[in-house]
Structures are given as C-alpha cells and as structure tokens.
Computed example of a mutant assay.
Amino acid sequence: MKPIKVPRKPRKCPKCGKTTVVKILYGMPTEESLQLAEDGKLVIGGCCITEKNPDWACTNCKVEYIKVK
C-alpha cells in the first residue's frame, strides 16, 4: 500500500482513529531505538533511505504517511 500524503504528522490516524502515529526511523538501529520500537514509540524502517520513504506510521493499523512539501 502506498503511503498517504499529509502536510504534517497526523495527531491521530485517519484510518483507525488511534493516537498511535509515530516516526519511522531509518538506518542502523541502536539498543535505545529498538527498545522504543518495542514500546510502540517509533517504527524501524530499515537501512535503505530514499526521498520516497514514509515519515510516520500508525502502530495500530500499520498505515504509513509521507510529508508533502
């Protein structure tokens, strides 16, 4: 599924209505970032970074969001 384009990070997910939209972290994760991901405070996005990568994701329904400029 393609990321939804938004002008800024949604306060709550438009799809499920939960306030579980968090930042997607790209690159090599640290122990701290792995713990934050386990706690649902961020999503690990992998090590390949492009301009088309989504910026945020809902940890409840897995919808991804990308900031439009």
Rank of each mutant, 00 (worst) to 15 (best):
Glu51His: 09
Glu32Gly: 09
Val43Tyr: 06
Pro7Lys: 12
Gly27Thr: 12
Met1Tyr: 09
Val43Cys: 01
Cys58Trp: 02
Asn53Met: 07
Pro10Asp: 04
Val22Met: 07
Val6Glu: 04
Gly27Gln: 10
Lys41Asp: 10
Asp39Val: 06
Cys16Met: 07
Lys5Met: 09
Lys5Asp: 01
Asp39Arg: 13
Val68Ser: 03
Glu32Phe: 15
Ile24Val: 11
Asn53Val: 01
Glu51Met: 09
Gln35Arg: 14
Ala57Leu: 02
Glu31Gly: 01
Pro54Gln: 00
Gly46Arg: 04
Pro54Ser: 05
Met1His: 08
Pro14His: 02
Tyr65Gly: 02
Pro29Phe: 08
Cys61Val: 07
Lys15Tyr: 13
Lys41Val: 02
Tyr65Leu: 01
Cys47Pro: 00
Ile66Arg: 15
Leu25Tyr: 14
Ile4Thr: 10
Gly40Gln: 07
Val68Thr: 07
Trp56Glu: 02
Cys16Gln: 01
Leu42Tyr: 07
Pro10Glu: 03
Lys62Tyr: 04
Val21Ala: 10
Leu36Glu: 15
Ala57Trp: 01
Met28Gln: 05
Met1Asp: 10
Ala37Cys: 10
Arg8Ala: 14
Val22Lys: 14
Trp56Phe: 15
Val6Gln: 04
Thr20Pro: 00
Ile44His: 12
Thr19Arg: 11
Val21Tyr: 06
Leu25Glu: 14
Glu32Val: 14
Glu51Phe: 08
Lys52Cys: 01
Lys2Asn: 13
Cys47Asp: 07
Arg11Trp: 03
Glu32Asp: 15
Lys2Ala: 12
Lys9Asp: 03
Ser33Cys: 09
Tyr65Met: 04
Val43Thr: 07
Glu31Arg: 05
Gly27Tyr: 12
Lys15Thr: 11
Leu36Ala: 14
Lys2Phe: 12
Glu38Tyr: 11
Val22Arg: 14
Glu31Gln: 10
Lys2Gly: 05
Leu36Gln: 15
Gly45Trp: 02
Leu42Ser: 04
Pro3Phe: 08
Leu34His: 09
Gly45Met: 03
Asp39Ala: 15
Ile44Leu: 15
